[in-house]
Each structure stands twice: as C-alpha cells, then as structure tokens.
Design a protein around this nucleic acid. Structure first.
Lengths: 194, 194
DNA sequence: TTTTGTTTATTGAACGTTCAATCAATAAAA
DNA sequence: TTTTATTGATTGAACGTTCAATAAACAAAA
C-alpha cells in the first residue's frame, strides 16, 4: 500500500471522512476510530498527518470556511455588472452554494459554530470569516445609503443568511437552498428600496 | 444537612449550575463533577434527581424553552391592542427578553441547538418550540396578506430572529438585545408595508 | 419526654467503559 | 539500505454510574 506523495490525498480523505462522521453521529460522538474507519485507514494515521484529533477538526473547519469563501469569490468574479445589487446578490448565492448545503457540510458547520464558543482556535477562524462577510456587505450597501443605515442593512442580511442556514441544518428535511436564496434576495430588494 | 422538600430546590440549583458550566467550558466539556461542584453538592445527587447526566441536560433544555414561551406569553397577555402588528411585535420582544439573553442561557441554547441534530429527545423539544413560533407568526401575518406570502414572511422573520440570536451568542461582546430587537421590528414593518 | 424506627438527603470511593495518543512492527518504494 | 507509509495492540487518563455508608428530620411508641 505505501506509495510516496500520499499526504495530500490522505488529508483530503480524512477531512471528508470527518464531515461524514459528524453528519452521522454529531461532533460530540465522533471518535478517531470512527473517522479512520470512514476513510478506510487506521486510526494511527490521524496523529501522523494532523498531530491529533484537534488538528484534524481544525483542518476540517478551515476547509469548510475556505470552500465558502471560494464559492462567493467565484460568483463575484463571474459577474458582468459591478453594481451593489449584483454584488450582494452574488454573496447571497455563494452562501447557498451547493458545496455549502450538502448534509455533511451543513451539520459540520453548525457543530463547529457551537463548538467555537469555547475553542479559541476555532473561534479565530469563525471571527475572520464573519468579519469578511460583514465588511463586504457593508461596503456594498454604503454605495446605496448612508453609513449607519448601511451598517444596519449589513447586520440584517448577515443575520438572515445565518438564520436561514441554521434552520435548514436543523430541519429534518434539510435546507431548501432555492427557497432560502429567494427569501434572502427578496429581503435584499426590500432593504435597497427602503 | 438533610431537610425535607429539597427536591425542587436541588433541581433548580442543578439546572442553573448546568447552564453556568456550559457557559464556562461548553457542552462537550461538561462533566457531572463540574456541574456538581458549581452547585456545591456531590456528583451522586445528579443521578438521584435526574436519573443521570442525560436527564439533567434534557431538563435544562426544557427549562430554557419554557422560559422563552413564558416570556412571549407574558408580553402578549400584557397587550391592549390585538392587531397583527402588535402581536408580532410582542413575539419579537419576548424572543429578546432578558431571561433569554443572559450569557449562560444564550450559550446553553446554541449548544443544545447543535446537539439536537443527533439527540432525538432534544430534537423533539426543539421542533415543538420551532413549530409554535412559526405557527404563531403565520397566523398573524395571514391577517395582513395572502396565505403564501404570509408563510414566506413567517419564515423570513423566524430566520432573522434565530440569526440575530446566533450571531449574538457567538460574538465576543455578546448580544446587544436592544439593537437586535430594533432590527427585527424594522424588518417587520418592511414586511407589512410591502 | 425520651426512645426507637423509618424516611429522605447526601456523600464519595470503586467499577467498568471509552477514548486519544503512542509506538514497535511491517512493508512497499526509492 | 534507507525512507515513507501504515497498522493495531497497548496504555493511561477521564468519565458516568452505582452503591454502601452516613446523618439529619420526622413519626410513632414507650
């Protein structure tokens, strides 16, 4: 079995297995044996590549946040128009991108959200991501309204996105991404015409 | 030490200690020894009154949900006007009631939120509470708009409330209840005038 | 009023289980 | 032969639960 250059392959494999395991039994019940079994490898390999369970969990959260950033960035790059409405629309669509709404990713995210309240390493990642979303929204809204009003609009929309997301993760039937996106876009229009 | 009639006192004491402990180290790091130490009693007493750790956790979540229901019910009962706008306003204010936004309650709630994805007993409580909020909002919005539009408005507002709440629980500086309430109320007005 | 017996409240050490981490052993590849 | 990749049994710590022991409060009997 041993070949060279396995490191990047195993890392991706184990991160995916971590999401699957969290989706299956929840973050608090996840063990390294379970994750290893999901990936079809032995448990020892986790410490070898990630230094331990915590390292793997942090890498998994980092992956999820990176996926989200890229989903948003991709949509914004693909835009022809540069207006505020179009930019914010792309941010919304990116947040409900396919890679973000698959069962494993959704539940993993919510689990990390809760866990980040008490793990400084995860909280740091969480905060960085949060601030970027807020700053982007704020910048775009400022084009259309006074600064204070724009701040409120950004807070408002960020909360709605997170709320739709949260309720989708908790609902037994999962998140209806299309419906959620439509609600957020309608809300955006209301904010811009007010 | 032993006096009669300690049961209700100890139950409340232990539930409060559970919230404090979760606020301190997070749900996943909470041990019965830690909770017992918070309450100033021995660890054995938890199994005596709650049948075990899980029983105590479920009782704690039930307490939080009950507190919320009562905060909402109290505000609605105090209303003079019965209009949809006033009723929904009371629901919003109840959701940002003092008892709900104290540090321990906020973090405990988010922790249970995540945990309910994989614990049927907690998921049941969560679902009941959720459905009641949605049904109430839906009923009130229906007075002011067509049924399908009302459903969307209810989903919208419920998501915004949860989102504001979630971001408040995660923010290092905690939830600014007044600001959150104002955002939700402004959003309500936008929904009603659209 | 004292004595005796019963119930309620509580403790904390002991037990069995579970888990993350470690590491000696092994095998393919270079 | 050396390096890289991997295994899985083992270890030690941590946890929830159990339970025998204890003590206060109460009730009935003497």
């Amino acid at each position: 079995m041993p070949k060279v250059g396995m490191e990047p392959i195993r890392r991706q494999q184990l991160i995916a297995a971590t999401m699957a395991a969290i989706d299956e039994v929840g973050l608090s019940e996840v063990t390294i044996v379970r994750i290893a079994r999901h990936a079809g490898v032995s448990s020892g390999i986790i410490s070898h590549y990630f230094g331990g369970k915590d390292g793997l969990l942090e890498a998994t959260m980092r992956q999820i946040l990176t996926d989200l950033s890229q989903a948003v960035a991709r949509r914004r790059r693909a835009l022809k128009e540069q207006g505020a409405r179009a930019q914010i629309g792309a941010i919304i669509e990116g947040n409900f991108d396919r890679s973000q709404i698959s069962g494993p990713a959704a539940k993993t995210w919510l689990a990390f959200w809760a866990s980040s309240m008490h793990r400084p390493a995860l909280a740091r990642l969480q905060t960085i991501n949060d601030r970027r979303l807020y700053a982007n929204l704020c910048y775009q809204f400022c084009k259309k309204m006074p600064r204070e009003q724009a701040k409120n609009a950004a807070r408002d929309l960020a909360a709605l996105i997170d709320g739709l997301w949260l309720r989708g993760a908790l609902a037994p039937e999962g998140l209806d991404a299309d419906a959620a996106r439509d609600l957020a876009l309608a809300h955006l229009d209301r904010l811009l015409t007010a």
